[in-house]
Amino acid sequence: MSSRFVSRQDKVFDLVNILVLLGFATLTILPFLYVLAASFATEVEIASRPFFLWPNDPTLETYRYIFSTDTFIRSLLVTICVTVVGTAVQITMTLLMAYPLADPNLVGRGLIMRLILFAMLFSGGMIPMFLVVKGLGLLDSYWALILPLAINPFNLIVIRTFFQQLPGELREAAEIDGAHEFTTFWRIMLPLSKPVIATFSLFYAVAIWNDFMSPLLYISDSSKWTLQMFVRQVTISTDPSTTIGNLDPNYIPPAEGLKFAVIVIATLPIMCIYPFLQKHFAKGVMIGSVKG
């Protein structure tokens, strides 16, 4: 594609395209840079300057405070472990289910799809779910953060669509060769689905990382708290102006600088996954070469 003749119209298109995208990228990145800058600023500076990208008087005080207790580091480690294990479990379970559902010959496929769709729209709610998790003995276990969300119906349906787009001939060819279904899945379909696996692993990882309700409801032991519990604790300050009834006067809203620093620490690690996954999006797959 790169070596071919580039028309004048193409050049104009390219330029406009680049400018629009760069403009959008600037809009999205500036506020985050502000959050980053504010995390190094003093309280007074945050209160007195409306928007800045570089603190006048940089300080490491908030970060020093955050890392002065081992609670924060522990929760960071917990979150990383749960995210890694959880993503592996969840993407595996989802792929395993999506693959057979993409097979046009599967008996009961329509029924299962309808049941999945129904489960996507309707839910029993917080309390019955809590009782199920409790009944399984998962309270205060890290599995409670993983298993209840193991298969996201939305992800499942989209992954199935991707599998369906893979040429059916591949599967049939393998079948004729006498290959085991699982072998076909493992050897042929999965390697072709790398962009999909990368995408949905990212979706699952981010969902686990950002999950707040599961640890809130299922984890009582505060030494097992994940990062999001602290993030919420620090960033969602209770607003006296909208409190129905009076706010507890003992409540002191957390310092602004601390909010920003916690946001930075809690988002940077997960944000860094994406660039690593990008190589899977960079180039299209060579379906022809697989088939040979």
Partner: peptide
């Protein structure tokens, strides 16, 4: 650009 525009999702 991809990385930049996906940042706001995390705020």
């Amino acid at each position: 650009i991809q990385t930049a525009i996906y940042i706001p999702h995390f705020l």
